[in-house]
Every structure is written in C-alpha cells, then in structure tokens.
Amino acid sequence: MSIKGYSIATIDEFVGRELGASDWVVVDQARIDAFAHCTGDRQWIHVDVERARRESPFGGTIAHGYLTLSLLAALAMEIGLIPEDASAGLNYGLDKVRFMTPVKAGARVRNRVSLVSVEKKGGGRIIVKTMNELQIEGEEKPALVAETLAMLVA
C-alpha cells in the first residue's frame, strides 16, 4: 500500500498526521507456538492450551508481548511507512513501549501508525519516529503502544 503524496521529498508534511491502519492479522495458536519455538519462551500461559483454559485469568493462551511487538514493523510497512522512492528502510530502535492488553490466541490485531517526527541525518539518511497502536478487534484498549524508530535511506 502507498500513502498518497508521501515521499522522501514530502515526508516533513506528514509529521503529526496518521499514516493509516494496516489490515487485520490473526494471532493464532500456531503463530504463538512458532514464536515460542524461535525464542525458547515456552511459558505455559502461551503454549499450554489446556492449562491456560483451566488456570489463566484470560480463559486461554495469550500471545507473547514481544510477539505482538514484532508485528509492528511488517504492519507499518504494509501501510506504506517506507516511501516508494526510498531505497531501504531499517529498524533503528524503540523509544517507548507499553503493553496494555493481552492478545488472546485467535484474536485479530492491526497497527494504526502516526508520524511523530523526522530527523535528517545527512547522506540521504532520515530517522522517522512513529507512534504505533496495536489494536485488538473488539477490545477498547490496544494490545500495546510503541514509539518506533526507522532509518530511511534515499
């Protein structure tokens, strides 16, 4: 997806504006299990479906917080955070992250992104700060809010 009028040359005009919202993505048990396998975080609240049904205050398994955080980059790219005229976009870091609401297995989430700031670094490099809100379908509070940093290369 691309954002109308959004480019390296016009990026400053988008500061303070919402860039858009991604499509909904399902965070199913298979994704949670794959994340647990990759990271070694096999805490029962994430991977033991039967125990989580019995003992979890959420009525079932929930996604890892870092799994939900890891979805932000791809969903921001889907929106069009990296302008079409950029040669590359790289993760540069995080400024703030707050996990607000657990994501239950099977829930759908999407990322709503706003451009907070743009810092030109020279050599065609630009640091963009975005505010990301990972929304959970049907929930009032988001799963998380995070200020992320990306380096765009012209």
Score class of each variant (00 low, 15 high):
Ser2Asn: 15
Ile3Asp: 10
Gly5Arg: 00
Gly5Leu: 07
Ala9His: 02
Ala9Pro: 00
Thr10Cys: 09
Asp12Asn: 12
Asp12Tyr: 10
Phe14Arg: 05
Phe14Ala: 06
Val15His: 09
Val15Phe: 02
Arg17Ser: 13
Glu18Asn: 10
Glu18His: 00
Ser22Lys: 07
Asp23Phe: 00
Val25Tyr: 09
Val26Leu: 01
Val27Arg: 00
Asp28Gly: 14
Gln29Asp: 14
Ala30Leu: 08
Ala30Arg: 13
Ala30Asp: 15
Arg31Val: 09
Arg31Ile: 07
Arg31Leu: 13
Phe35Gly: 01
Phe35Ser: 01
His37Ser: 09
Cys38Glu: 13
Ile45Trp: 07
Ile45Glu: 10
His46Lys: 01
His46Gln: 03
His46Val: 08
Asp48Pro: 10
Val49Met: 10
Val49Pro: 11
Glu50Val: 05
Ala52Leu: 11
Arg53Glu: 14
Arg53Tyr: 04
Arg53Thr: 12
Arg54Met: 13
Glu55Ala: 15
Ser56Gln: 12
Gly59Tyr: 03
Gly60Asn: 12
Thr61Cys: 14
Ile62Thr: 06
Ile62Asn: 06
His64Pro: 11
His64Trp: 12
Tyr66Asn: 12
Leu67Asn: 02
Leu67Lys: 04
Leu69Gln: 06
Leu71His: 05
Ala73His: 03
Ala73Gly: 13
Leu75Arg: 11
Ala76Ile: 01
Glu78Gly: 13
Ile79Glu: 05
Ile79Met: 12
Ile82Phe: 06
Ile82Asn: 01
Glu84Gly: 14
Glu84His: 13
Glu84Ser: 15
Glu84Trp: 01
Asp85Cys: 04
Asp85Ala: 09
Ser87Pro: 08
Ser87Leu: 11
Gly89Ala: 08
Leu90Trp: 02
Leu90Gln: 04
Gly93Leu: 02
Leu94His: 05
Leu94Thr: 06
Lys96Cys: 09
Val97Asp: 09
Arg98Thr: 13
Arg98Tyr: 08
Phe99Tyr: 15
Pro102Asn: 09
Pro102Ala: 07
Val103Thr: 04
Lys104Met: 03
Gly106Glu: 06
Ala107Arg: 05
Arg108Tyr: 04
Arg108Gly: 01
Val109Ile: 15
Val109Met: 12
Arg110Trp: 00
Arg110Phe: 00
Asn111Asp: 15
Val113Gly: 00
Val113Glu: 06
Ser117Thr: 02
Ser117Arg: 05
Val118Thr: 09
Val118Pro: 04
Val118Glu: 12
Lys120Glu: 12
Lys121Trp: 07
Gly122Ser: 08
Gly122His: 03
Gly123Tyr: 02
Gly124Tyr: 01
Ile127Tyr: 00
Ile127Lys: 12
Ile127Trp: 02
Thr130Pro: 02
Thr130Gly: 03
Thr130Ser: 11
Asn132Arg: 05
Asn132Trp: 05
Leu134Ala: 06
Ile136Pro: 05
Glu139Asn: 05
Glu139Val: 02
Glu140Ala: 13
Lys141Asp: 07
Pro142Lys: 05
Pro142Ser: 10
Pro142Trp: 10
Ala143Met: 03
Leu144Lys: 05
Leu144Tyr: 06
Val145His: 04
Ala146Cys: 14
Ala146Asn: 03
Thr148Asn: 11
Leu149Tyr: 14
Leu149Met: 15
Ala150Ser: 15
Met151Asn: 04
Met151Ile: 14
Leu152Lys: 11
Leu152Asn: 01
Val153Gly: 04
Ala154His: 05
Ala154Trp: 06
Ala154Val: 01
Ala154Asn: 13
